[in-house]
Amino acid sequence: MVRLKELNQIEKEETIKKGNFACAGCGLNIALRHALAPLFKQVSIVVPACCTSVIQGMGSGYGINVPIFNIAFAAAPAAASGVAAAYRARGVDFVAAAWAGDGGTYDIGLASLSGAAERDEDIFYFCYDNGLYSNTGGQKSGATPRSARTTSTPTGRTTATKSIARIVAAHNVPYVARASISYPRDLYDKVERAKGIKGFKFILIDQPCTASNVFDSGKTIEIGEYAVKSGLVPLYEIVDGVLTWTSRTKRYLNPEKRIDRDGEAFLDKYMSLQRRFRGANPELVELLKQDINHEIEMLRRLQEDSSIQPWE
């Protein structure tokens, strides 16, 4: 893993600019900083409707330090395919990427994502996932965890979250990974490794949203950590169809280990900090716990040796 001192050197020139429109405590800026650092001065990003279209700002300049093509909600993977084709046609060594939220990825952009993945476009696809439509005020997306209240599920989401990473992996693309802004060095490493792979690279980044999921802006990192430690956001890479768990989070794949030193469940800690889970229906919360185990079980089947438990 990249050492912090190295990263501090590498990121001397940053991929974002100071004083952009992101909310105080927004994890999106953290994702942009560390996910794009390995591609700095090589990458252009295509951004569909999402918070990244807004945080650039409005006026005399924009607050992100890489080229951006802002495009319609469902169009980012196709447009990034076009950018990559132009770079190939011109014979220049630049990288095209789509940078989309979970709404643009799980929902409205899914057909376009599937098309680009199936064509094995030589692009990066980054999905920064805050589990709802934040830019429009907090509606349910395909990524919203069961039981979470949103403005379109005021009594809590009743169905299971879509497993976008497994959907993309089912396209037989060379690289799929899940990362979190609470583990920036791991995020950086994953992009750095994927850089060397030709073909479609999908990176799903968990990014707690202070504004719509309503928590204290200082808690962004802590909540992201609990998401991982509760098993809700397992971290892994799927390279050429074979899954490897990210070592730092492996122990939390074991349902028995998802508790802190005082015996408090990380899922409870995760939920209690966010207003979207306040008064959550206990039956839905039970189902959410099953969702977590189910997803890890399904991912286990992609291990090289699927007979062993993920935490072994």
Binding site: K17, K18, G19, N20, F21, Q56, G57, M58, G59, S60, G61, Y62, G63, I64, N65
Partner: peptide
Amino acid sequence: VLKPIDGSAGRT
């Protein structure tokens, strides 16, 4: 079309 600048949202 815009160029990158610090303070695109003003003095935050």
